[in-house]
Design a protein around this nucleic acid. Sequence first.
RNA 1: GCGGGAGUCGCCCAGCUUGGUCAACGGCGUAAGACUGAGGCUCUUAUCCCUUAGGGGUUCGUGGGUUCAAAUCCCAUCUCCCGCACCA
Length: 996
Amino acid sequence: MKKMVENSVEKTPNVELNWARIGEKWRKRWAEDKIFETEPESHKKKYFLTVAYPYPNSPQHVGHGRTYTLADVHARYKRMNNYNVLFPMGFHYTGTPIVSMSQRIKSNDLELIETFQQIYKIPSEKISSFKEPKRIASFFHEEIKQVMNEMGYSIDWRREFTTIDNGYSKFISWQFRNLKKKGLIVQGSHPVGWCPQDQNPVSQHDTVGDIEPEVIEYVLVKFKFEEQYVIPTATLRPETIFGVTNLWINPDIKYVIAQVNKEKWIITKEAARKLEFLNASVSIISEIDGSDLIGKSVFNETRRQLVPMFPASFVDPNNGTGIVMSVPAHSPYDYQALVDLKKDDNTLRKFAITVNIVPIKIIQTDAFPSNDSSPAESIVTRYSIRDQNDPKLEEATSKLYSEEFHNGVLLPNIDHIGNLSVIKARQTIREKIINKEIGTTMYELKNVVKCRCGTPCVVKLLTNQWFINYGDDNWKKLAYELIENMEILPEEIRQEFTNVIDWLKERACARKSGLGTKLPWDSEWIIESLADSVIYMAYYLLSRHISNNLDLQKNDDMVLADNLNDNFFDYVLLGKNDRDLVAKDSKISIQLLEKIRNEFLYFYPVDSRHSGRDLVPNHLAFFIFNHAAIFPRDKWPKQIVVNGSVLMEGKKMSKSLGNIIPLRKAIDEYGADSIRLTMLASAEILQDSDFSIDLVKGIRSKLYEIYRTINTNLNIFTTSRDSFDYDVDLEDVWISSRLQHVILETTSAIEKFRIREALHNILYLMDNDLQWYEKRKLAKNKSIPNNYLREFFETRIKLLSPFAPYFCEEIWEIMGNHSYISLAQWPEINQSRISLISEDNERLIQGMIFDIQKITKVTKIVPKRILIYTASRIKIKLYKKLLDRIQSQATSNFGEIMKEFVNDNEVKDLVKRNPDLVRKMIDDILSESVEVRERRMKIDSFDEAIPLQDGISLLVNEIENDHLEVNIYSEDNDDKYDPKQKSKFARPYKPAIYIE
RNA sequence: GCGGGAGUCGCCCAGCUUGGUCAACGGCGUAAGACUGAGGCUCUUAUCCCUUAGGGGUUCGUGGGUUCAAAUCCCAUCUCCCGCACCA
């Protein structure tokens, strides 16, 4: 412990900064003075912002911190801009992972226990209490809350709740009855990946190797066999049924005859089992060898003809029904298998079969025109396939499939689907087959997936599943309307929201296990975690007035959760029902009811919702939909801010890579401020930010540098505050003006959530300005006037304070303030301090020094005397005319300008004599940005000699020659010293130079 | 398949929204110098090519186009990455 503290101390002679200590100090003061507790204040503008609450099944690591930190910066920024900011936090207990963790603890899962012990450092006795899921949740809940405090988040903790609180459940029940009344909840069946052992749906994180179970739908085509039997084949291409020439049977495996619903099917045992999970009624009657079927024929209903069954060892008993239909015209595998079989005399003799199959072509494409008898044959020839084991066969197959899928058209002579595209034909024939009962569908996993418990997964058809119908057209319209009126930051991600709303369909909203609220009308079901977390922002405004029954103190100014019913929520959240009745019903005073109602009315709607971009296709979309459904338009959320995730040293954070840094550890070692800045400064908001320890250290030392500089200049904060107008130099005017720019640019960057840009301004660009300012002063043997330096630092610390709050509070205090910077006023721009000309002044000096250095470098002259010639009055006049010409968009064409100006009495002599100069001046103007051009239009008279003269001292310093003689002449000056006739090259803003 | 994004000077990365101050920020690396007993610390300078006057040439995946002017806008093309549901 001691060592960690050591780590977080920075020290140089006379100055020391203990990051841990300042964190603790300010955290404590903020809490004591309750500065982040927010009450409705009718005379003040409110700002209500929320972040997706955390799921407490692990401690927070740096990856979690980004969204919360961003929201906190936002809250702090708005607070400094005089808003009454509410930033609350809750905890999302709902869902299955915590329950399954507790089960893994019960079954003594070593991997999990090790994670708890070694990565999270949880004591063993604590871990054994984790057999109870709520213990896990509350343990990490407290842990996370602690970290959020240590990070310096300005949260109003009085409103905290968990999603299994009694009151919350009442609220969610209200939400769901509400949705149901509006007809947005529907019931139906849905296929899911399923573990037969656990009797539970499986998703990516429940499987070995984190494989996502992918469900695909096969069409089962039934072939009649010996009148009483059905042989079903599974296919993804039902349209090819018209091209079936034979079936493939694996002669080496056993099949079963099974009663499936009302028919007798011949399928593999594995297929029979799979059908059971799909809710077919299945009973096995007898077994039959694959070889017994070979050579016999089945009846193809669609073509009304018999096709034979042939042997094939490639048929996988685990795939589909274990019987495959053969379409040699369009399946390279089938085609090649037939070719191979024809050559295989042993097999032919063994089963007493002959193979004289003619492929039946049914699809044509441009690549395989209609006179071509079999596309499969063509492609097999083209790829020079040897036999069915040739690896190139796979490539040939996918090539042909994709060609036919996108560009294929069914031949005109095919019943029902002739002339249709493959995509259309597939849909049409699927319906036909199912309607006419010559086939059905079957779900299957596309990949082999094992549950964490080791059991291979299957597809289960869940019936009577409850769905929220996001496919409802009217609802979608409302959702579109909502986002159209909402600010989405960054704007680039709006398209993604539109897409998501577009393709969202029914979505399951309840499951049978996990923590959460029971479905109010069907208590077997628990409302799923993505369904009970979409309008809870409203609950932050109620939570502190609701006493859950667990609470010991029962206060008169609280309402008991048990007494809450839908009328209460209808009244408070929607303004429905009679006030007096509701108060009576909820067993509270009218005053309390009104207080709650008014608090809701004051703070709602949500002004800003922060979240990671991974939640766009689910949580954020549901947030939009549910608000659109439940609340009136004036309570719809106003803004969404989306941020990217965090990488660690360029890699995704994961347990297996061992690159997860818990936030607490990071805070201990580097202090919260540096961590906050690192997460925000390393990338623009939507990009993944790359966190690295080097970066943290770099930022920490940057902060320390600021701290040290201020500490060594402490006297400037204690001296009396002079006015700004004494003894003003050019660079003083300039730095004042620059400061206004920094404020303007930083503020507008924050408004657009260009946080990286804002921090770049504050941490680095401000330094450049200060450096130049110091250099200029130093060259004149002057020091920076106190009030300029003080203003610079005060502004800088204020701008930085939403990002690094502890650090800035500390400095604010050192500067002699007795207030909180967290509550200070955001810097405002002082228009009178903006000086347009000062930018050109300093640029001219920079340019002069730069040019001279370049000349000396190339010529290797050691300058003894430097002559500088500023442009003549007539050139300045010409420059103005050109600028005006170009800015008014008339033309920038050299020829046209020349034509015009040779007739201009004021300048024609100059123009005629020196066309090249005109061209260069046009280029000068064109190569300046529009901003600079506009600025120069505004400036009436600009005497270049003034800044140049002022900059001589710096020039002498830079050239490192104290005896250097510098003379500045106007080109117009007849007495000038100009031995090499250089002055004629002078242009406005580009003086001519001669070096001796 | 559907949707989203990225390709920049040895490496990482900024700039592209709003074309011009862009041979292109910053960091790493490399080279030289300062400091030091010595440095792996710190600081300064340089780092596409050519150039004895502030200049010129060729660059921002590739090929076109628009424009006085393109890393930035438009079109085409190649390569790479990410998300797609019952899971928080």
